[in-house]
Simulated scan of single mutants.
Amino acid sequence: MKTIVICSGGLDSVSLAHKVAAEHELIGLLSFDYGQRHRKELDFAAACAKRLGVPHQVIDISAIGAHLTGSALTDDVDVPDGHYAEETMKATVVPNRNAIMLAIAFGLAAAQKADAVAVAVHGGDHFIYPDCRPGFIDAFQAMQNHALDGYADVTLYAPYVTISKADIVTDGASHQTPFEATWSCYKGGARHCGRCGTCVERREAFHLAGVADPTDYEDPDFWVAATSAFAAEEVK
């Protein structure tokens, strides 16, 4: 299955790239510049493509992203600290981001005669990101079947959509994913901050998976308090 992987340079998508390279035919990585706070993650995606020996395309949709206002990932809005599933993390939603990116990716896949587009959405994303849920994945596939009917047959490959980030760490480790060569932090500093939702989720995932975390965090222990606080709120 000739597959293009949408790769942000983060733990999930880099793990997916290594999975596809091992189990299918990886023909390229696709990244998007949507006007995110920092481009650091794109450098990690480029490094992944070089490591796996495939082309890396970066599509500039920053002009579109500039109109998707209100998100901490694109605007001058503070990135919230705490557990990934907290209500405060809705500040990191970029409206319709995955639908926009996937529509472009499917066009490229059809043009390049690819069989599949792979995306690393996972079960932990379901809390706050509606375009990461199984219902969205199924509906998007149905829509593309109509959009490309008679021209191309492209599958949306989302193997992580019902599993946890800890499961992704386990899977990534089985495919020798170099986790130290991935970037998750929303703040884009010299080191992972250890406090934003995606840092907390990353740190917790390694712990739950029982895999050594090679990440350099500014605050490596914050995740414990954040996870405990979220669990306490869930009990109420």
Rank of each mutant, 00 (worst) to 15 (best):
Leu148Asp: 10
Ala110Asn: 01
Pro159Asn: 01
Thr162Ser: 12
Glu180Asn: 09
Gly172Trp: 01
Ala173Pro: 03
His146Ile: 14
Phe179Val: 05
Val79Asn: 10
Gln141Ile: 02
Ala139Asp: 09
Ala103Gln: 10
Ala120Cys: 10
Pro80Glu: 04
His146Pro: 00
Asp138Cys: 05
Ala103Leu: 03
Val154Leu: 02
Ala110Val: 04
Asp153Leu: 00
Ser174Glu: 10
Thr74Gly: 06
Asp75Glu: 15
Leu148Ser: 08
Tyr157Asp: 07
Gly172Asp: 03
Ala114Pro: 08
Asp76Gly: 03
Glu180Ile: 14
Asp138Ile: 13
Gly124Asn: 11
His122Gly: 12
Ala120His: 02
Asn145Tyr: 03
Ala72Pro: 05
Leu156Asp: 02
Ala99Cys: 13
Lys90Tyr: 09
Lys113Met: 01
Asn98Phe: 09
Val79Tyr: 03
Gly150Phe: 12
Gln141Lys: 09
Asp125Leu: 01
Asp81Phe: 14
Gln141Phe: 02
Ala118Asp: 02
Leu156Met: 11
Asp171Gly: 12
Met143Gln: 05
Val79Cys: 10
His83Lys: 04
Leu108Ile: 14
His83Leu: 06
Asp76Ile: 07
Val117Ala: 04
Tyr151Cys: 14
His175Pro: 07
Ala103Val: 07
Gly70Tyr: 08
Ala166Gly: 01
Thr170Phe: 00
Ile100His: 06
Thr170Tyr: 00
Leu68Ser: 14
Thr92Lys: 02
Cys132Thr: 14
Ala173Arg: 15
Thr177Met: 10
